[in-house]
Simulated assay, not measured.
Amino acid sequence: MATFLKRKATVVALAALSLTLAGGGIAAAANPAAKTAAEAGQPGARQPGHQPPVTAAESRAAKAALNATLAAPTPGLVAWAVVSANGTLLQHSANVVSAKKFSPSVPGQFAGQYQVTLDYDIHLKSLHATIGTNDPANVPPGGEVSVAPRYLTPNAVFVQTRSSSGGYADRPFHLVIAN
């Protein structure tokens, strides 16, 4: 009799487990309004990362800034900048010359793409960026930021900001170039 009850208990437990799993699968399949990754707050597919082409005017301006150099900060010091979402240079160290936002209406340029120009060669320097503002509350919007040396421009930095879901988005940022 004890063996019969053990077998019966095992069968009942397996049946309950099977019904639970099947019911959960049916309930998930019956939910047509399932949220997309973006609605659920999960990162979506990333757009390809690339820099806009360098124009002749940008190249001339970068060369002029490089030729009119102060002195590069000595090792251990940093150059820094605070840039608004519209590309305005809000605060900066002496070696930062300019900041600009690329226009998403121009082919090959997207929202959230910026260039910060310095008066010295930044290749082989350590580049760091973070989303941030300089407003009194200092609560930046959510998002992501990446930074790289500017293609074909030795004294400029390329910054790409994105929304938290990975889409191109204009965001204010802080930039540090460690020497």
Rank of each mutant, 00 (worst) to 15 (best):
residue 116 V to H: 02
residue 95 N to C: 07
residue 64 A to R: 09
residue 65 A to N: 04
residue 104 P to F: 13
residue 64 A to F: 08
residue 94 A to H: 01
residue 113 Q to E: 15
residue 86 N to H: 09
residue 101 K to A: 06
residue 88 T to G: 02
residue 168 Y to A: 09
residue 165 S to F: 06
residue 116 V to F: 04
residue 127 L to G: 08
residue 80 W to Y: 06
residue 156 A to Q: 06
residue 113 Q to M: 15
residue 146 S to C: 10
residue 165 S to G: 10
residue 126 S to F: 14
residue 74 T to K: 13
residue 140 P to I: 03
residue 92 H to F: 07
residue 166 G to S: 14
residue 82 V to Y: 01
residue 114 Y to G: 04
residue 116 V to M: 02
residue 96 V to G: 03
residue 140 P to G: 03
residue 63 K to H: 05
residue 143 G to I: 00
residue 126 S to I: 13
residue 145 V to D: 11
residue 115 Q to A: 15
residue 131 I to W: 08
residue 134 N to C: 02
residue 126 S to M: 11
residue 146 S to E: 14
residue 120 Y to A: 10
residue 115 Q to N: 13
residue 105 S to I: 12
residue 84 S to K: 01
residue 71 A to K: 05
residue 147 V to S: 03
residue 165 S to N: 12
residue 73 P to E: 10
residue 167 G to A: 10
residue 124 L to Y: 11
residue 140 P to F: 04
residue 157 V to E: 04
residue 146 S to Y: 13
residue 86 N to V: 10
residue 159 V to T: 04
residue 139 V to Y: 10
residue 150 R to H: 10
residue 66 L to H: 04
residue 149 P to Y: 08
residue 89 L to W: 06
residue 126 S to W: 14
residue 98 S to E: 08
residue 164 S to M: 07
residue 142 G to T: 13
residue 160 Q to I: 05
residue 71 A to R: 05
residue 106 V to Q: 06
residue 163 S to W: 06
residue 69 T to C: 08
residue 93 S to R: 00
residue 141 P to N: 07
residue 123 H to R: 15
residue 168 Y to V: 07
residue 84 S to H: 02
residue 131 I to R: 07
residue 112 G to C: 05
residue 75 P to L: 03
residue 84 S to F: 00
residue 116 V to S: 02
residue 107 P to S: 12
residue 158 F to W: 15
residue 119 D to R: 13
residue 165 S to K: 06
residue 150 R to M: 12
residue 101 K to I: 04
residue 129 A to K: 00
residue 166 G to D: 11
residue 139 V to I: 14
residue 149 P to M: 07
residue 162 R to S: 02
residue 169 A to D: 05
residue 144 E to C: 03
residue 101 K to N: 05
residue 110 F to D: 11
residue 161 T to E: 11
residue 75 P to D: 05
residue 110 F to A: 15
residue 133 T to R: 02
residue 110 F to E: 13
residue 99 A to Q: 15
residue 127 L to C: 10
residue 62 A to V: 07
residue 142 G to C: 09
residue 63 K to E: 08
residue 118 L to M: 13
residue 138 N to V: 04
residue 90 L to C: 02
residue 128 H to W: 09
residue 78 V to T: 09
residue 122 I to E: 10
residue 106 V to M: 05
residue 139 V to C: 08
residue 91 Q to F: 02
residue 89 L to K: 07
residue 157 V to P: 01
residue 85 A to K: 01
residue 67 N to A: 09
residue 150 R to T: 09
residue 65 A to H: 01
residue 83 V to Y: 02
residue 64 A to Y: 08
residue 108 G to M: 12
residue 67 N to G: 03
residue 145 V to N: 12
residue 128 H to L: 10
residue 83 V to W: 01
residue 120 Y to S: 11
residue 86 N to F: 09
